[in-house]
């Protein structure tokens, strides 16, 4: 029978990780954490929970693997094309008149959505006056995002998503293929700033016209969600936009009265 960790054991691991490495996962939703850790213990064939815990406590390289495996980095370009269509047709025109635009991708993972947003900005003729800040708690995925290199075999799907999002150009004009990889154009990359930022512990660092944080909050408990909403509220320009994942909502936030939701989309605009 496989090892299924108890709530108490989960708390022990997360306390260790916080005390030794300073990463705070204690306010993450427990069900997903349980599953990720059970899965990691099985994949890496630990004979017992105690040995797993000891390895994390004593092996820094293994701790990196732990972060990589328990944080979810499944993403794609133009994921939910309808969302990117709304970004293209409703959000970008509303901020286009600003002389200078800042966009924040919070929890950017390996960067697929950052490049998607850059393409939309380019097509709206706004990229030259925009800076896209892309942050994640995991330095390894931030490095990957920064490289702008993706697998060639994903491009067919991404191209279909791009067209479904209302894209009219030739998607392949945005990258150069080499062997089984592609690298995205320098023109897109030079408007991006990559950094590590932990939504649990780090504060506001600028003011933005658009913040995108999609499928990140589902991993947080309600208290941490409130804390992050507060951070986004502080980091948004007076008429700025906040975009969340398809199943995430600002509905339970105390700040909801300060925002108006776009029709049927998980996009909110700050109104005060």
């Amino acid at each position: 029978m496989e090892i299924l960790i108890t709530d108490k054991q989960l708390d022990e691991v997360l306390e260790d990780v916080f005390a030794i490495y300073g990463y705070d996962f204690k306010s993450y939703a427990k069900a997903s954490m349980h599953r990720r850790i059970n899965r990691l213990i099985a994949i890496d064939k630990f004979p017992s929970f105690a040995e797993f815990r000891y390895r994390i406590r004593t092996d820094k390289d293994y701790f990196h693997r732990f972060v990589e495996e328990i944080t979810v980095n499944v993403t794609e370009m133009f994921r939910d094309p309808a969302f990117f269509n709304a970004l293209r047709t409703e959000v970008l025109p509303a901020i286009a008149t600003k002389p200078f635009i800042r966009v924040w991708h919070a929890g950017c993972s390996t960067g697929e959505e950052v490049y998607s947003t850059a393409i939309l900005l380019k097509e709206a003729n706004m990229l030259h006056k925009t800076l896209i800040y892309a942050t994640d708690l995991n330095p390894d995925v931030v490095e990957k995002a920064k490289s702008g290199i993706f697998q060639l075999d994903r491009m067919k799907q991404y191209s279909e998503n791009y067209i479904a999002s209302g894209g009219k150009a030739d998607f392949s004009s945005y990258y150069t293929a080499k062997y089984d990889r592609v690298i995205f154009n320098e023109e897109l990359k030079k408007r991006m700033i990559f950094a590590t930022h932990n939504l649990v512990s780090d504060g506001s660092f600028n003011e933005f016209q658009l913040i995108l944080c999609r499928n990140v909050l589902i991993y947080f408990d309600k208290d941490l969600q409130q804390k992050v909403f507060d951070l986004f509220d502080k980091s948004l320009d007076s008429l700025g936009f906040l975009a969340l994942g398809t199943k995430e909502t600002l509905r339970f936030s105390p700040f909801i009265h300060r925002f108006r939701q776009l029709d049927k989309m998980k996009i909110w605009r700050k109104i005060s």
Partner: peptide, 18 residues
């Protein structure tokens, strides 16, 4: 497109992992 999980306090959680 989401995995469905259950929390100990009898709420639902969603997850977009592999």
């Amino acid at each position: 497109d989401y995995h469905l999980l259950f929390e100990a306090d009898h709420t639902f959680s969603l997850d977009v992992s592999e």
